[in-house]
Every structure is written in structure tokens, then in C-alpha cells.
Design a protein around this nucleic acid. Sequence first.
DNA 1: GATGAATGAGGGTTCATTCAT
DNA 2: CATGAATGAACCCTCATTCAT
Lengths: 211, 211, 211, 211
Amino acid sequence: MARRKKQPQSVHRKNISQIAEKLFMEKGIENTSMNDIANESGYSKASLYVYFKDKEELIAVLVLESMEKLYEYLSKAVNMQGDFYYRYLEICQALFQYHSEYPLYSRMALMNINIDFEGTDFLPEEKDTFRVGEKINELLWRFFREGIESGVLKRDINMAQTTFAMWGMLTGVIQLSFNKEEYINRMIHMQQKEFLDRSFKLLYKAISMEE
Amino acid sequence: MARRKKQPQSVHRKNISQIAEKLFMEKGIENTSMNDIANESGYSKASLYVYFKDKEELIAVLVLESMEKLYEYLSKAVNMQGDFYYRYLEICQALFQYHSEYPLYSRMALMNINIDFEGTDFLPEEKDTFRVGEKINELLWRFFREGIESGVLKRDINMAQTTFAMWGMLTGVIQLSFNKEEYINRMIHMQQKEFLDRSFKLLYKAISMEE
Amino acid sequence: MARRKKQPQSVHRKNISQIAEKLFMEKGIENTSMNDIANESGYSKASLYVYFKDKEELIAVLVLESMEKLYEYLSKAVNMQGDFYYRYLEICQALFQYHSEYPLYSRMALMNINIDFEGTDFLPEEKDTFRVGEKINELLWRFFREGIESGVLKRDINMAQTTFAMWGMLTGVIQLSFNKEEYINRMIHMQQKEFLDRSFKLLYKAISMEE
Amino acid sequence: MARRKKQPQSVHRKNISQIAEKLFMEKGIENTSMNDIANESGYSKASLYVYFKDKEELIAVLVLESMEKLYEYLSKAVNMQGDFYYRYLEICQALFQYHSEYPLYSRMALMNINIDFEGTDFLPEEKDTFRVGEKINELLWRFFREGIESGVLKRDINMAQTTFAMWGMLTGVIQLSFNKEEYINRMIHMQQKEFLDRSFKLLYKAISMEE
DNA sequence: GATGAATGAGGGTTCATTCAT
DNA sequence: CATGAATGAACCCTCATTCAT
């Protein structure tokens, strides 16, 4: 009879990181102990350290995963069929989806997008996160260039700067819409979705040719 | 000779909260222990608890202070002499100054801006923070209304929604400019200041009448 | 105009000890801090230490006071008009009253009743407590002697031993009746009072001549 | 050679609880810190919390153990060969032995004997303690019923009430004999043992038929 | 490879007490 | 005399991490 093949490392890492993610979402990263993760995942506390160097690495992996998802979402949006404006809105939606699915890491991921990793004290996952960040950059870059070349966007914009600024602004308004959802309902009399749609449109005016 | 005046409570609170702020900046709030604050400030750990109910209150005080500064900055900007656009840029500068001086609390303060404080379990400082947040809201509201009424801004904008969206976007781009300062230098070949100035201008186009 | 006479020490001690007693009753001795006593009494924390050497002395005073009350109750009972049995029951009632009024100290007082105070490390109050204890002893002693001489009690009892044994037993059953009041209601279907009356009578049979 | 068997949990719990017991005896429960227990037991403070949820559980375990011992002693006494009186004295001895071995918990155990444990916030050990208390109740109940039915005890006694009263009285006199051992020697000229024997006999007269 | 067992280091908080004024 | 101010010492408890097996 064939010996049952032991699960490879990667399966255990996946098992653990999924549980960790669940717990991080529920209770926050700081308030989730390795103990909690061990209990919930069925692995022993010591085993966690077999598969992950430490808690930090576990987090880094989750951040990386979220980053990869973000790339996937954005990539899909950019490559969609449709005119520029349509795809712009799809990109906004992608960002929105990312923030709703990974509220915890959005901040960390975005911070790590472009770390200067000369240093030696970076986890491999952190470097990978950076690389994915770069890919995202390029993606958006290309998108905006296309906008200019096709005459939809103003000619005079500095592409790199605009891309980055848009990124910051979109991220900011989306985050705000999550943090203050209730306030928006009460004071602006809008659902989060409507608020964001209008905000996305507002921002589009800043870059488009149309008056 | 006059008897040496005892330092009033408030002086000690100031001493302590300043040290706390310094440490929070350096190591993060979670990683700064009351022990650290005691050692650094020269007060005994027990004394800390004479002047602050607990760590939470200490933080709340710092957040409140930062909020009050923000209000001060914005108020000054709004009430400046100059045309609408000039004052808009001043507001952006005010936000920038706030973020550079209170990077830690910017997030917390902004989160607490509009908490629904029916609950009874809020520290006085938290309620005050909320109130200052409301005052800031009104301030910006009035500013934008003025812009519309004077014909500088588009007539069709929803004021509340626009105010809020602008707020989120400005905050987002400023935060990004701090988190990725070095990246901006390297990849966009700009100083943070220049990057932000351009971003502020970019955003202005979204709301102004001019083409 | 006459200068207002300062209150003498004893008044302050009384003020403080009364508040302390109240708090001790409400929250237990261990859970009442000197801070609590200061706040509630209107004296400053430091002033507490002007009037009492330390928390221990404050407790000792309360214990002494309770002891003196007990002596008063017992003395009244013993000196009442009525036959021996009647006065026996009065003594039991006195003990009961004491336990209901001073549940906290009953234990401490009773423990200190006969400390061997050769030692030098006793508070004056503790020595006084001892002395009152001795007076109580004599009181009961005399009572039982009277019972024997009047032919109501068995002749063969060792007076000292019986007195002491009675003391322990009465104390025990009374304490039990307080600790397990609810249980007595539920399982024995009696009110505390009835339970104790019957117990007092039961015990009386052990010493009386009657069959 | 056999692999050395790891010590099972229970051994560590035993080690720790024994040290704790020793320290509790010496310095009192409140005055014994987890630190003390750690130092004395050779375990690290953190390890204590591996084996016991918290200090409360440690205490509850000790109380339960003492209760179980008490049940064991009483059970043995009740089931002894011999007439009723003889077994009565054995029961008294059992109580005495219990108090000498577990002076600290006697009070706590006895308090918990009949808690109304509808509540959900009881430790398993506390519930168990309750259950053992119930078993003790039944044991004594049966013993007294036997006494009545065999004509040794008065017919007119209320069994439940008498059992409980006896319990309180015996406990009271035994506790007194420990607290005041020296005083008894000096003033009554008796050893503790003799004092108790006489007291047990005295109490017996209260319930027996004999004149 | 997997883990039960163990822990050092530190967390926030409280308290009885002292002392300069 | 009275006290505001200050604190050392302790408290219970938690956590990420290690290591022998």
C-alpha cells in the first residue's frame, strides 16, 4: 500500500495563513496571538514556527497575498473592453473591492509598495510585495499613457506624478468611505457606493479633456 | 522671597504627554510602554497614573491636541486674505502641516472625527475630539459654499459630498507623500513639496469652473 | 472674636473610622483602599496617616470598637431580669446581634480575644481588644457559675471549659446561619431566626439539668 | 531502556498546588503572590499559567481537594464498626483532622458547601466542591436518621435542622480550639485534644436520649 | 517533521505609604 | 496641623518564542 504522501510545506502555510487572516479580520492583528492561531488552525504553537519564521512573516505573507489580489483586480480592470472612462471606473471599483476584502492590509500593503529595499533586513515576502507594487505601477502607467495618447486625457500632465497622485487620492477617499460609512449615511444622505461613484467621477474631471 | 509656586497639574500633564508623543512617534503607540514613558519623562510609573487615568486617556489627549491644532491651521487658512484659489491652497498647506507634525494621530483623529457618541463609554477627550471635528466640518462647508456662491466653483456640486470627498483625497495624497517620500524622489524626480503642489492643483481642476 | 476651637484628634479619628467601617462593609476590607477612605471621608490621604499609623491600626480600632459593643450587648444580657434560661437566650441574641452588626470583625475580634501579648509588636488597640475579651470571659464565667450554684446547670461541668466550648459552638452556628442563610431557607425550610432559636435551645439541653 | 515518560500535566498541577498550599498556610492566600509560588516551586511564573487558568483556579483546586479529603474522612467515620456514639466521636475526629490539615480552606470550603450554582460564572472546581458538599450533607443526614431510628437519638428532633446546627457548632468549637490553643492551655489547663473531647461529649448530650 | 512544555520579558495598573511644604 | 504630590514595590497576567524530544 502506498504511503500517504505528506502534505508539502506550502499546504501547511496556506492552512495557517488562512486561519490567521480570518482571526486578524475578526479581532485585529495586534489582538490575535499566536496561541489563537494555533488553537483555531489545529496546529501546535511550535508548528507555526516551523512554517513561519515569526509572526511578522505570517503577516508579510498575508500582505503579499492581498497585494497579488490587488494586482489581479487592477489587471482585469485595465484590460477590460470599453472606452477609457469605463475602464477608469473599473479601476476604481477594483480598488474599492480590494479595500473591502483586505481592510487590514490595505494600509500595510500600500506602505510597502515602494520600500527602498537596499537593506538586508527584509523578509522575502516584503521584497515580493514590493515587486508586485512595481508591477501595479507599470500597469497604471501604461493605462494613463494610453489615455493621453488617445486624446482623452490632458496632454500636459506629468504621467508619473499624476498616476501617483490619483493613487493616493483614490485610496484616501475609499478609506474614508469605509471609516466613516455611518457618518456619510447620516450627514450626506448617501450610501457608501453612491458617495464613491460621485467621488470617482469628480476626480475624473481633474484629468479629462472635457469641460 | 516668594514661595516657589508648585507646578499645576497641567504642567505635569504637558510634560508627560510631550514625552509620550515623542516616544509614540519613534516607536509607535503599541510599542511604547508606560514604563518607557516613565523612564524617559523622569516621572515614576505610578505618577503617570496620577495625571492620566490610563494609557488610553493619554492617547486621547494627544489626539485631541492634534485635532485642535488642525482646526487652528485650517481656520487660519480659511480666513486668510486672498481669492478662493489662494485660500484653497492654504487649506492644503494646513493639512500638510498637520500631517507632518502629527503623523500618528492624523489617522486616529480623522477616524474619530464623526463618531456617533451616544455611548456612555467615551472619554471626555474623545467627545471633545468629536466636537472639534464637527467644527472643522462646518469650516470647510462654509468655505466651499462661498466658492459656489462667488461663482468660482461649479454650481452643480453637492457640497457635503464634495467637501467630504476632497477631504479624503487630500488626506490620501498627503499621507502617500509621506509614506513614499523617497520613492517619489527617485521615481518621479520631485521633492515631496512639488509633488503635493501639483497634486493640489490637479484636484482643484475637478471642482473649479475654469477649463 | 473667639478663635474657632480645632476639633480634637478623637473627632477626626471617629470621622475617619466611621467612613472606613462603612466602606469595609460595602466592599470588604481588602478591597477598600486608603484612597477610597480619603475620598469618601473628605480627608486627604496624607491626613489619614496623621490620625492612624497605618491601615492596620485603622482596622484594629474598628475591631476594638466592635469588641466593646459585644461586651456591652453581653453585659446587658447577663444582667437582665429573668431566670437563667431566659438570660441564656438573651446572651445568644446578643451574640447574634453582634454578628449581624459586625460581620467583618467578628472573626478578627474573636481571634484576638486571647492573644498572648508578651510580644512587643502589638498595637495598643490590639491589647485593648484583648482586655475587653478578658472582661467578656469573666462575664460569662460568672454567669455559668451562677447557673451551677442555683442548681440549673449540671454540677459536674468544668466551668471554664464549658464556657469556652459554648462560646465556640454558638459562634459557629451563628456564623453558619449567616453564611448559608439561603441554603437554610431552601433546604431546611426555616428562616434564619427560627433556625438559630432552635439551635440555641438544642445547645441548652447539653448543659441543663432537665431531661 | 524505556523512554523516560514525560510527566503528565497532573503531576505539575500537584507540584504547584502543593507549594501553593504551603505558602498559603504560611502567609495567607491574599499575601501569597503568583511570583512567590513560582519562585518556591521552581516553575516560571508563566508556567503556572500553563497549568492553572489563574490564581482563582489554583485556589479552587485546593479547596476542592480539601473538601474531598473531608468527605473521605467523614465517610470512613460514618461507616465504621461500632455503636452510634462511637461513630459520632469518629465524625468529630474526622472534622478535627480536616481542620488541622486544611485550616485555610475549611472556611472557604464550608462557605461553598451549598452555593446556588445556577450562575454560569463558576469554575468547574467550584461546582465540584458544591457537589462534594452535597454528598457530605447526605452522609450526615443518613447518619442522624439512623440514630433516631435506632432509638439512640431523641425522636422529636428536626433532622435537617439538627444536622446543620451540629455542623456549625462542631466547626465552631474546633476552629476556636485552633485559634486559641495556647489560651486553652493556659487558662483551662487542658490540651487542645482534651478540650475538644469534652466539648464533643457535651454536645452529644444535647441530642441523645440518655439523661 | 511536529510538538508539548517551558519561559523571559514585559504589559498595564494599584496601593499603602512618605515627605516637603 | 494638613495635604498635594510622588513613588517603590508589587500585583496578576500574556505573549512570542525556543528547545528537547
